[in-house]
Design a protein around this nucleic acid. Structure first.
Lengths: 231, 231
DNA sequence: TATAAAATTTAGTCTTGACTAATTATGAAT
DNA sequence: ATTCATAATTAGTCAAGACTAAATTTTATA
């Protein structure tokens, strides 16, 4: 048995590091560089080094760190990072469904609150919502035990032309982009194809019966899709 | 016009001081001593002095502080303290009504979250609840503009014998006491009288048609009542 | 009014987690 | 294999906000 509950206490700063490492290490547990962390957290690389040394020197440890060669999460660190991620996505779903937040408003509030809700509140929110599978942007909500159902997503900007795709999720970090997507009907579940031969600074997509429309590559990069069958 | 919105940023620590000063300064703006603050916040008096000096030295200032003679809130400080208090009580009501928290569970969660909810979330919660007047323990929720409807409460332990009273509120700080009160039916709105000649270490009360029961003075001190007409 | 107890403040320390400036290691390109 | 740009680390500083121990002011009491 992997000791049900013995998560060492963390601070908001530590949580932010763990979450950043999780997000930057990709689908399989790649090492993350100090620089990448500094960029993601909007702090200086020297500060990152300091924190990583402290984190790695603690026991039990959240991270494995090798000087000059980046950092990656231990099982414990991943457990905590996923817990925060679950908080974040549950909160987004809750704010959206119960408190009438729009999908471009939820991220900022959830980002603050995710560090402070108790396990009890996490559970009550999940129960109230009926254990939802995804947040308002289509991101998968980790399960209570830390499991994250897999899903192979591809950026719309890299999807082959002419093949039908379904939007699986969109980035939640840019409220203006989210409002634009909503206006265009680019929400999770939307079925679309990229028209052939339209791959310059923008691309043209077609959704159902409507007229096709132009999309900047930046916007298309924030939209992730899956094959239609996996919709 | 008193400048609608210009609340300087605060930290959790500062919020806690302001809230403590508000709670300890009673109905009318009495000076609060460093010792009283230290006791309430469970920190050392020397730490209190340090914080008060910093707070008072800032501009615009949340407190007026005179060395060796205690502290009291400025209008700005009171505004912020009442804002936190509104957060706390709205959260308690919300956790209780929407997320099925029991009345002995709400305080701890609200105490943490009160510092981190945005004005937007405050507003959405209030709207969802229909601008409730009181929290689950009967405490009045300050209005959005900072107004707090007055109410003259007296501790049950000091209420005259034989005179009918209505429970207006109970202390929310002790979960065990709250469970005990709930078990005995001692909730806001309950009508009761203190039987004559029962004022020693405990007192005997009678509620409606039920048999009378003994109450420790400690418990009675945590129950506030108003005259029946004001119920 | 003198004095002792209680309350308060000062002085100096500690931890957390950021910062800058200066130094060193890495790795890509000659 | 050298060199140079980039990445990363060290060293030292700063602000918050807690702490202890020692000094001081208030206040209550004799």
């Amino acid at each position: 048995m992997t000791t049900k509950h013995a998560m060492p206490a963390t601070t908001e700063a530590v949580d932010d590091y763990l979450k950043a490492i999780l997000e930057l290490s990709g689908p399989e547990d790649q090492r993350v560089t100090s620089n990448a962390l500094a960029g993601h957290l909007e702090i200086r690389a020297a500060s990152v080094t300091g924190m990583l040394q402290k984190l790695a020197g603690h026991t039990p440890s959240f991270v494995r760190y090798e000087k000059h060669h980046g950092v990656h999460l231990t099982a414990l660190g991943k457990r905590r990072a996923v817990e925060i991620l679950r908080h974040h996505r549950l909160l987004e779903r809750f704010l959206h469904d119960v408190l009438d937040y729009s999908w471009d408003e939820v991220h900022e509030e959830a980002e603050r609150l995710e560090h402070y809700i108790s396990e009890r509140l996490e559970d009550r929110i999940a129960a109230k919502l009926g254990d939802p599978a995804v947040d308002p942007h289509g991101h998968i909500i980790p399960e209570k035990d830390g499991a994250i159902p897999a899903r192979d997503e591809v950026a719309l900007s890299k999807w082959p032309c002419g093949v039908t795709a379904v939007i699986s999720s969109v980035s939640d970090r840019d409220p203006a982009a989210l409002r634009e997507m909503k206006r265009l009907g680019l929400v999770p579940g939307t079925i679309l194809t990229v028209e052939t031969g339209t791959r310059t600074a923008s691309l043209r997509i077609r959704m159902g019966s409507e007229a096709s429309l132009r999309l900047s590559c930046e916007l298309a990069a924030e939209i992730l899709v899956v094959p239609e069958s996996a919709g």
